[in-house]
Each structure stands twice: as structure tokens, then as C-alpha cells.
Design a protein around this nucleic acid. Structure first.
Length: 568
DNA sequence: GCGTGGAGCGCG
DNA sequence: AAAGCGCGCTCCACGC
């Protein structure tokens, strides 16, 4: 049922005379060992895993990325998994987790689930003063095979005793599937045309500059800016110099951010905004970025599944989740392939409709754009207004246009608004809130709690500010986290279907990119209709999985294109 | 020289 | 027309 995999490097000492690559332990449905552990000799792991996966086990990894990327490199995939670290992180916070010794222990060591930057398998420094002995001695690090098996048992027992076992099980399965998908996407990479990227850079910036120099067009703008501000030597990269120069030129801004600059009219503003735009392209996605992240026609970022408190993915290096529209034209399919870009339309407000069982909001999104539906029902058909109002409701806006539009929204969708308001009040009071499937937000920090127990008026103002800030966080958490689990289920369902097709000899394509509510497939050009159908089926399946039978639609918009730039 | 926090901006 | 959630990256400014 489960097979626990422990890379041998973490199970030193090595048995004499052998050179194992990994240890495997088969267990029953409760994680209890079934038979003795297997020692997999060097060079045989991928092959062994491939053979065992036919028996449809759930592979147990301490870190999916560490264990699975090498398998993928050897051409081996697995069907299902259980990621101990991700499950640990969810269980330690979830309100659906029962009070077991394992959970209590987790909650007493906050670092284990809060700080992913500290790999659990590295012992504290004071325990290994000599770096050279580090790899020759047994590590008391809790990742030996038997410790992984023990933790699996603890986790399965906790889920079994949960008052919401089904939801929690689904969440943990989806989270683990997400980790597999993240590794697979990292392995496949995003098809990237270096030539087109270079064309974009040269047309916007000019030739690649020498190390430490500005590109030609950026330099021109800096010079022009110096002239307009009558200050030839200042650097627009320095906020302090910049704001002083602006003030001297009579432009009275509090910050130098673009939206505030746009409110003034002065001949220096246009070149400044242009400089900003190009400077960002140069520094964040320029030649250096290309050198670092694109090789052999693939952009290979590192994804961090479960890297965000709400359950969204994060990324490390390469800014994978912030690819600017400016360079999306560089994402091109291989010959014989197409890009299929699917987007869950207005996912978060639809999730809110489901959470609140708000039939008016559900109706507004039936067979149409949800924001347009809201607009038609209460904002005179003005879609932009409806969208601002809805986003404001989910983010906790109090001022500005968004704040002004809120009352109208509350009149039309009292049930939906009540859900986010309740979440906000809970957060302000220091409570935790949870997603539909049971991912809970972190409790307030000790500093936050201490701030709430203040007496002086000034401290009280600060405490109120902190409370409102937490309220905005929890308000958004219920929606964002539930949207993230819908999206994970969507991806997992899609993965299952794609693997099913491949197993039958009909390769449809690969999942190559995921961005919160949007997925990109690199599909064979003669199977785009099939891919489209799988994506749509998966969305329907995800809705059923998460919410059961509900009268809320979760439509996906699908574009089959030859450039990512054409997807929107 | 090194780490950190803020500003600014990219994405959803 | 503009302030309210979640991130990552790059730069500068600052303190050590």
C-alpha cells in the first residue's frame, strides 16, 4: 500500500561491503511495516521503483523534490505519493487534526513546519563541529528509514482520527500530488526560445552591454532624465537621489512609485517611467537571467510546492511565477507541438460563492463571466467596477473606490460577504481560519498577542492596526487557500488523465507550467482537442472532489497557441 | 565585506 | 482611478 523511500545518503552508516542507493520499506494501510526493509544497490533505484510502481503503491518521500527529481532524470515516474514534510506542515496547523502525541510534539517545535529553509536532515551546527566528519558518522537527524516509517504511522493515525477525515485525506493527497507535479514541471521545463527573448531585449534595450554597464537605451533615458531634472550626474536607481531631484524640479511626491508619479505632469516623468520599465526588464529578465535560467530551449525554475501559507506554490530562483507579459512571447512550443494555456476563470469569487453557498453569486457566474454577472446585477453593467468591488471584498479594502463600492456588493450578496467578514473578525480576535478542506492559517505570533494586551493610547492604536492587518489576512486566507486546493485537485486530476492516456500509448503532452489558477501544457499538435477535453473534465472533477454536487460553476478558458503571449 | 530591511514592481 | 491579499527578485541604504 505504502512504500517508504529513504535515500541511503541519509542512512549512514552504510552496511559493510555494500553500496546502497536507498532503503525501501513496504507497509500496510496504517503504515505498519510489512516484511523487512529492502536495500537497493547503487544504480538500481530508478529501475526498482519502476517495477514496484506497477503495484500502485503510494510512495512516501520525506522531500518529494529531493527523491523524485533523480528518478525523473532516470526516466522513472510514479503514480501516487505521500510527502511527509508537506503533510507534517498541514497537520501541525489544521483545526481538523486530532490531539495526538505526534501533533502535540509538532506544535511544540514551530521551526519544523514554519521554516522550510532549515532542511530537517541537517543536524544543528553544534552537533557537527567538524565538517569533514559530517558525512562519515551516523546522523541523529530523524530521517533514517525507521523514523520515516514511524512518522508515516503517526500521520496516518492522525488523519484516521480526524473529525473531517475525508476532507483532510483529499487535501493531503492533492498536496502530495502537487509536489510530484512540481518536480515533473521542473524536470520538463518551460519551452523557451532564446532567440526571441534576445530579440525582445535588443529591441527594447539595444545591444548587450559590457559587464557593469547600462544598455544603450537605458543610458539614453538616464541622460535625458538628467537634462529634464537639470541634474546630469544623479542615478535614477537611487530612491533618495531621485526623490531629491524630483523635489528640486518642483514635483512634490511622497514616494517615487509609478502610480504616484503618473498623477503629476512634468517632462521628466515620462522618461523616468520608461527608465523604470526598461531597467526592470534589464535587471530581472535580461541577458543575465537568460544565462542563468535558460538552457537547451528550456526555462527550468525551481518550484516550492506548499511554499505559501495559503497552499499556493512559491518558486525559488528565476522568478518563475512573475514572468512579465513583456517576455511571454519567448515561450514557444517545440516543432510539432502547441501550447495549451488553461485558466480557471474568476476562481476566487467562485470559490467564495461555493464556501458561502451564495446562490445569487453562483447565479451571477452561471454560463458567463462572473464579474460581468455581478456588474449586470448591481453595477449598471460596469464590469470593471464589479471586479474592483469583489476584489476589495476579498482583500479587505476600506477606502478608495473599492471601499465605496462594498455596500452595494453586501446588499446583493449578503451570504458571500458574511463569510469573508466573519473570517476577518476571527483573525482580528486572534483566532485561526481554515480552507474548505482544512488547511488552517498560522496562529498569531507571541508579539502580536503581546501587542493586543497594551494600555497606552498609542500602543492601542498600533495594536488595532496589527489586528486589522491580521483580519485582512484571514479574510483573504479562506478564499485564497480554498482556491489553491481546487487548483491542486484540478492539476492532480489532469495529471491522472494525462498519465492514463500515455499508459495506453496515446501521449497527449506534458504539464510544463502552473501559476495559481492557470496551467500550461506542451501538447502534440494533433491532440489539442483531446488535451482541451481533459483539462475541462479535470476542472469538473475537481469541483466535485472538493465541494461535491453544488450549483456553482468553475469554467476554464482554454487557448491553444504558438506563443504564450497569445494566450490572453 | 556581509546580512537585512525597505522600496519598487513583476505575477496571480 | 488607485490601496487591499499572497508571493520573489533586484536594487539601494544602513548597520555591523
Amino acid at each position: 500500500m505504502y512504500i517508504v523511500l529513504a535515500p541511503a545518503a541519509r542512512n549512514i552508516p552504510v552496511p559493510a561491503g555494500t553500496e546502497p542507493e536507498a532503503y525501501l520499506q513496504r507497509t500496510d494501510a496504517h503504515g505498519a511495516p510489512a516484511g523487512p526493509p529492502a536495500v537497493v544497490p547503487a544504480g538500481k533505484l530508478a529501475e526498482t521503483v519502476r517495477g514496484l510502481d506497477a503495484g500502485a503503491p503510494r510512495w512516501v518521500f520525506d522531500s518529494t523534490r529531493d527523491a523524485y527529481l533523480p528518478l525523473l532524470a532516470a526516466g522513472t515516474g510514479v503514480d501516487r505519493s505521500h510527502d511527509l514534510a508537506l503533510v507534517r506542515s498541514i497537520l501541525s496547523l489544521s483545526v481538523y487534526t486530532p490531539d495526538t502525541a505526534y501533533i502535540r510534539a509538532l506544535r511544540e517545535e514551530p521551526i519544523a513546519h514554519q521554516d522550510d529553509e532549515l532542511p530537517r536532515h541537517l543536524p544543528p551546527l553544534q552537533q557537527s563541529p567538524d565538517q569533514f566528519t559530517l558525512f562519515d558518522e551516523p546522523r541523529a537527524d530523524g530521517t533514517a528509514l525507521e523514523d520515516l516509517v514511524a512518522e508515516l504511522q503517526d500521520q496516518l493515525a492522525a488523519v484516521a482520527a480526524s473529525p473531517q477525515r475525508a476532507r483532510l485525506q483529499l487535501l493531503l493527497a492533492a498536496e502530495s500530488a502537487g509536489a510530484l507535479i512540481a518536480a515533473e514541471m521542473e524536470h520538463s521545463g518551460v519551452p523557451w526560445s532564446e532567440d526571441i527573448h534576445l530579440d525582445i531585449l535588443s529591441s527594447h534595450l539595444g545591444e548587450r552591454p559590457r559587464e557593469g554597464q547600462r544598455p544603450e537605451k537605458l543610458e539614453d533615458l538616464a541622460v535625458k532624465l538628467g537634462q529634464e531634472l537639470a541634474n546630469p550626474s544623479f542615478s535614477p536607481d537611487s530612491p533618495q537621489q531621485l526623490i531629491r531631484a524630483l523635489h528640486r524640479a518642483g514635483i512634490e511626491v511622497k514616494t517615487t512609485s509609478s502610480w504616484e508619479l503618473k498623477e503629476h505632469s512634468h517632462p521628466a516623468i515620462e522618461p523616468l517611467l520608461q527608465y523604470r520599465k526598461l531597467s526592470r526588464l534589464f535587471t530581472a529578465n535580461g541577458w543575465a537571467w537568460l544565462d542563468a535560467w535558460v538552457r537547451d530551449g528550456r526555462f527550468r525554475p525551481e518550484y516550492v510546492a506548499g511554499g505559501v501559507v495559503t497552499g499556493r506554490w512559491a518558486s525559488r530562483g528565476g522568478g518563475a511565477l512573475q514572468i512579465p507579459g513583456q517576455i511571454r512571447d519567448a515561450v514557444r512550443p517545440d516543432p510539432g507541438r502547441k501550447l495549451l494555456v488553461a485558466d480557471a476563470a474568476q476562481l476566487e469569487p467562485r470559490v467564495l460563492a461555493a464556501l458561502a453557498q451564495d446562490s445569487a453569486l453562483a447565479a451571477a457566474g452561471r454560463d458567463k463571466d462572473l464579474y460581468q454577472g455581478i456588474a449586470d446585477a448591481g453595477f449598471g453593467g460596469d464590469r470593471a467596477k464589479a471586479k474592483i468591488a469583489m476584489l476589495g471584498a476579498m482583500y479587505g479594502a476600506t477606502t478608495g473606490e473599492s471601499g465605496r463600492l462594498m455596500p452595494q456588493l453586501t446588499r446583493t450578496y449578503p451570504q458571500a460577504i458574511a463569510v469573508v467578514e466573519r473570517a476577518a473578525r476571527a483573525g482580528e480576535a486572534g483566532q485561526v481560519v481554515s480552507s474548505y478542506l482544512g488547511r488552517s492559517c498560522p496562529p498569531p505570533s507571541d508579539r502580536w498577542l503581546a501587542a493586543q494586551r497594551t494600555t497606552t493610547a498609542e500602543e492601542q492604536r498600533r495594536a488595532d492596526g496589527l489586528a486589522r492587518s491580521r483580519g485582512r489576512f484571514t479574510r483573504n486566507f479562506v478564499v485564497q487557500s480554498t482556491a489553491a486546493e481546487w487548483a491542486l485537485c484540478w492539476l492532480a486530476e489532469l495529471r491522472r488523465r494525462l498519465r492514463g492516456c500515455a499508459a495506453e500509448g496515446t501521449s497527449v503532452g506534458d504539464m510544463v507550467f502552473f501559476l495559481h489558477d492557470e496551467v500550461m501544457l506542451h501538447v502534440h499538435e494533433d491532440r489539442t482537442d483531446m488535451a482541451r477535453r481533459l483539462v475541462e473534465e479535470s476542472a469538473a472533477a475537481a469541483t466535485r472532489l472538493v465541494f461535491g454536487r453544488i450549483p456553482v460553476e468553475f469554467p476554464v478558458s482554454v487557448a491553444v497557441v504558438d506563443s504564450y503571449a497569445d494566450a490572453k
